[in-house]
């Protein structure tokens, strides 16, 4: 545990933070990319994330297997996504509003059922040590990478390929760009959107399980500090691209590590402002990447928020 690395601690902590903190953002935003590509927006992923964190932790504790927890979280997220997808398929039902309602419901249910699981200790997800080549404990710690992070990275590539090269991807894009065109091709847009939202929900659930089962690795009512919501914002500035979403999540994780890292090298003034860095950063990027006409490049044309 020795070795003072001075100011290098800041960039190193940010790399470590990017890897540690980004995974929930990554999963939620990858899921939301797919959902939004189909022309729907699900703002309720924050609730799904929190419920996934609870369900994952509870199941991991009860079964003794962290992976069972991840499965449970994905399933719970899938159900929330299905509910969102089905409700929004009813005519005149607003997807943004339903998202807000499900955020409330998901969080409420998670806290309701999560009470007995605040205290127990559930098994953690395993991590892979990619920092074996270094003698510095700081480097080793920063590069202790969770399997889910790698899965997420692979998923980003796979989804990008899927969107571009496969029939499923084409279907999604058609539905997202025009319901009428989709119908003309014999595709049922409602069904595609329900499935896309369910998929997004499942990924958000996994993102939640990462929070409770790896980092910070415990279930409590303050487990999420808005990760689910921010991830939805990240999708917009990732321009609905899975690869961009990966980098956006990394950037955001790194910004989140800035506050504590600066304090550890002696920059101690105004830490609240440093803690707000991720939010400010997202807002700035949103402002820069939006355009007056509202017609964002790459935006699915059926998406309510860009209309």
């Amino acid at each position: 545990m020795n070795g003072d690395i001075g100011l290098w601690a800041v960039p190193l902590a940010m790399i470590g933070g990017a890897i540690r903190v980004s995974t929930p953002f990554l999963f939620v935003s990858l899921g939301e990319v797919i959902t939004e590509r189909s022309g729907r927006i699900n703002l309720g992923l924050e609730g799904t994330l929190v419920f996934g964190a609870m369900a994952g932790y509870a199941l991991a504790y009860l079964t003794g297997s962290a992976w069972a927890g991840v499965g449970a979280a994905a399933l719970a997220g899938l159900l929330f996504g299905l509910v969102h997808g089905l409700l929004c398929s009813l005519p005149k039902v607003n997807d943004i509003a339903i998202g807000i309602a499900l955020m409330l419901l998901g969080t409420g249910l998670a806290f309701f059922f999560g009470k007995p699981f605040i205290q127990p200790v559930a098994p953690d997800l395993p991590a892979i040590n990619l920092g074996w080549w270094s003698d510095l404990p700081q480097v080793q710690a920063a590069l202790r990478v969770n399997v889910l992070f790698l899965v997420g990275a692979a998923l980003a590539v796979a989804l990008a390929w899927m969107l571009r090269k496969t029939r499923i991807g084409l279907t999604l894009r058609v539905v997202g760009d025009s319901s009428d065109a989709a119908r003309a091709l014999g595709i049922r847009p409602a069904r595609v959107r329900i499935l896309a939202t369910a998929f997004g929900g499942a990924l958000a659930g996994i993102g939640g399980a990462y929070l409770s089962l790896f980092y910070p690795g415990s279930w409590n009512e303050g487990i999420s500090s808005g990760q689910g919501l921010i991830a939805v914002a990240l999708v917009i500035f990732a321009r609905w691209s899975p690869i961009n979403a990966f980098f956006a999540a990394l950037l955001f994780g790194a910004a989140g590590a800035l506050g504590p890292a600066l304090q550890s090298v002696g920059v101690t003034q105004g830490y609240y402002l440093f803690y707000a860095a991720p939010f400010v950063l997202t807002l700035i990027v949103l402002v820069l990447s939006s355009s007056k006409s509202g017609a964002l490049t790459g935006a699915p044309r059926e998406l309510s928020i860009t209309k």
């Binding site: 808005g226 919501l229 939805v232 707000a276 949103l286 402002v287 939006s290 355009s291 007056k292 964002l296």
Partner: peptide, 17 residues
């Protein structure tokens, strides 16, 4: 109005700020 930034997300981010 001026930048086409979605108001739902912007207002939420600004609440955190």
């Amino acid at each position: 109005q001026w930048r086409g930034v979605n108001e739902t997300i912007a207002s939420l981010l600004m609440a955190y700020i």
